[in-house]
Amino acid sequence: MAAACGAGHLRPSVGDAPSPPSFRPFAFRPMSRAGRLTGYALMAAAALLAVAMRRGMIDSLGPFPVAAVALLVGMIGVMLVLTDIMVRGLYAQVAAAKDAPAATRDDGKEGDE
């Protein structure tokens, strides 16, 4: 009966379905360094604000003193840079754990000896 219907009209069985790809968020593209570069730019802006304040070129930015703005901008920049470094380290540890042989991943448990 399957021959009468033609091969193109048969429903695929469950075993014929393609397997879904494994979830790997950064498997095909490397992590962007935009966060870290933005952090460096904010830290440089904070340094420039501090230099301008020291030379007397600027006293305040709106209702806020320049020192407060420079500290806030610099703190956000440092936070972005350190977060990027920590996330990269975490992904490197996960990748190293996946690549490690199964014998080294025993988690300290005793076998059935």
Rank of each mutant, 00 (worst) to 15 (best):
A2T: 08
A7R: 13
L10G: 15
R11W: 15
R11A: 11
R11T: 11
R11S: 11
D16M: 13
D16H: 12
A17K: 15
A17N: 08
F23D: 15
F23L: 13
R24Q: 14
R24Y: 11
P25W: 14
P25T: 15
A27N: 12
R29A: 13
M31A: 12
R36C: 15
T38S: 12
G39D: 00
A41L: 10
L42F: 05
M43E: 14
A47K: 03
L48H: 12
L48I: 07
L49G: 00
V51F: 02
V51P: 00
M53F: 06
R54F: 10
M57R: 12
M57Y: 12
P63Q: 05
F64C: 06
A67G: 11
V69G: 00
V73K: 04
G74D: 01
G74T: 02
M75I: 03
M75V: 03
I76A: 06
G77Q: 01
L80R: 01
L82T: 03
T83N: 06
I85P: 00
I85D: 05
M86G: 06
V87N: 02
G89N: 05
A92W: 01
V94F: 13
V94W: 11
A95S: 09
A95N: 08
A95F: 13
A96S: 07
A97C: 08
K98G: 12
K98F: 11
D99W: 02
A100K: 03
A100C: 04
A102L: 12
A103G: 04
R105F: 04
G111S: 13
G111E: 15
